[in-house]
């Protein structure tokens, strides 16, 4: 990465303006992915002085500043209680501790990584994102909208729910990207998201709708849910796994996940 100028902004307005001044101006959070993905940067905008590194809680929700490191999120006691700690579980399976000390929750969302182990979890947790200019939107709205304006994520909010959850990352080694990942929560109703298809993660809305209409989650219902999921997912092939194998993984782990959360 070749950087012309490094600017530590004093307020978020300044960051926003700089960001929109020039297509080659970039926001840096941890910078771990930026290094691999961007060659030329005009102004690199650091938000380090904006106090966006925090985790605040109230009765209903947890608010996490965009610059909070993944490791801090993972180790936070309150986050650990949300739906049996599904977010912590997912984060703990990303690379090693040192990169999780560097990488941020904001960068993990704004990078829109199709291999993300975090986005599927934020989808099932129905996480809210707060942007400087655009204001509030759900993570699902964010990842499904195209051509959004350049904006700055300031914090995210997750409701304190205490449902059951399931997270599974399938990868060749513990340090590899997922071949597929599966996130499920259940607190009376089901939410299911699949990531690393290898395309962008998605909520399985039809499958969720089907399951949420059922009174009894029998093995039969689970089987049906799995086949609905397979029709709505957009699985395909890359160097890590073929489409056919991803289908096997999706089938197997959605089934196992459902069984576990209703236990």
């Amino acid at each position: 990465m070749n950087v012309n100028e490094y600017v530590v902004v004093e307020n978020i307005d300044q960051a926003y303006q700089l960001f929109n001044q020039n297509k080659k101006n970039q926001i840096i959070a941890g910078g771990a992915w930026l290094k691999l993905s961007v060659k030329e940067v005009n102004k690199l905008i650091s938000l380090d002085d904006l106090s966006l590194n925090y985790i605040k809680t109230n009765d209903k929700s947890v608010e996490i500043g965009a610059l909070t490191s993944l490791r801090e999120v993972e180790m936070n006691d309150v986050v650990n209680e949300i739906d049996h700690g599904i977010l912590s579980t997912a984060i703990s399976q990303i690379m090693g501790v040192s990169i999780r000390n560097l990488a941020t929750i904001g960068g993990s969302i704004m990078g829109r990584f199709s291999f993300s182990d975090i986005i599927p979890v934020l989808l099932v947790l129905d996480c809210q994102l707060y942007f400087h200019n655009r204001g509030e939107m759900t993570i699902n709205e964010f990842i499904t909208s195209k051509g959004l304006d350049r904006d700055i994520l300031t914090y995210i909010k997750i409701n304190k729910s205490t449902g059951q959850s399931y997270f599974k990352k399938i990868s060749h080694t513990a340090l590899d990207f997922s071949m597929l990942n599966v996130a499920i929560t259940f607190d009376g109703s089901f939410r299911i998201a699949i990531g690393s298809q290898p395309g962008m993660a998605m909520l399985c809305e039809q499958t969720m709708a089907f399951l949420n209409q059922q009174n009894d989650i029998s093995e039969d219902v689970i089987e049906q849910a799995v086949s609905i999921a397979l029709t709505e997912l957009k699985l395909s092939s890359n160097i890590r796994a073929s489409k056919a194998y991803r289908e096997v993984l999706a089938k197997t782990y959605i089934k196992r996940g459902l069984r576990q959360v209703i236990k």
């Binding site: 691999l36 060749h172 080694t173 513990a174 340090l175 590899d176 990207f177 160097i239």
Partner: peptide, 23 residues
């Protein structure tokens, strides 16, 4: 692994994986 033009696809440690201690 190579692409069909002979370019290495597994040319970094993101795409060439060695065993980790958890494995």
């Amino acid at each position: 692994k190579y692409s069909k033009n002979g370019k290495l696809i597994s040319g970094d440690m993101l795409n060439y994986k060695i065993p980790t201690r958890l494995d």
